[in-house]
């Protein structure tokens, strides 16, 4: 499934403009600990988090994630979006809690990819 279908299905609010919307989603990961994400997440995954500061964009770019989903209505800093757009990273936000987002991703058939 392409990332744009995921964003549409979950009715997420896409905050960035330069990301690859055709990227094939390989799985999902949920965590608010950056080092944990770097050790566990794989390229093409969507990352569900409550973190909205700019290091999120850096981590997503280094791993090559399909998108970051900032859940729970957590604020996303302007600098985060700038960094994401500079690196062609998709960031989408939702008021849904992280738990619900993960459940909906699973319902779409996006598992933890392993």
């Amino acid at each position: 499934m392409q990332i744009k279908e995921v964003i549409n299905s979950l009715n997420l609010n896409l905050l960035t403009h330069t990301g690859d919307m055709q990227m094939e989603v390989t799985g999902g990961y949920a965590s608010d600990l950056l080092s944990n994400v770097m050790g566990q997440a794989e390229p093409g995954m969507v990352w569900v988090t409550m973190q909205g500061h700019q290091n999120v964009a850096a981590v997503a770019s280094l791993i090559g994630l399909a998108a970051v989903i900032v859940a729970g209505g957590a604020p996303v800093e302007e600098d985060t979006l700038k960094k994401a757009d500079a690196n062609n990273i998709n960031i989408a936000a939702t008021d849904l809690p992280a738990y619900v987002v993960a459940g909906q991703l699973y319902a779409l058939g996006i598992t933890n990819g392993k």
Binding site: D32, L33, L34, S35, N36, G39, T49, H53, N55
Partner: peptide, 15 residues
Amino acid sequence: QMGFGAGMGLPNMMK
């Protein structure tokens, strides 16, 4: 609060 401090950086580097 910024998501660092899991104590996983050095283990990640080694891995």
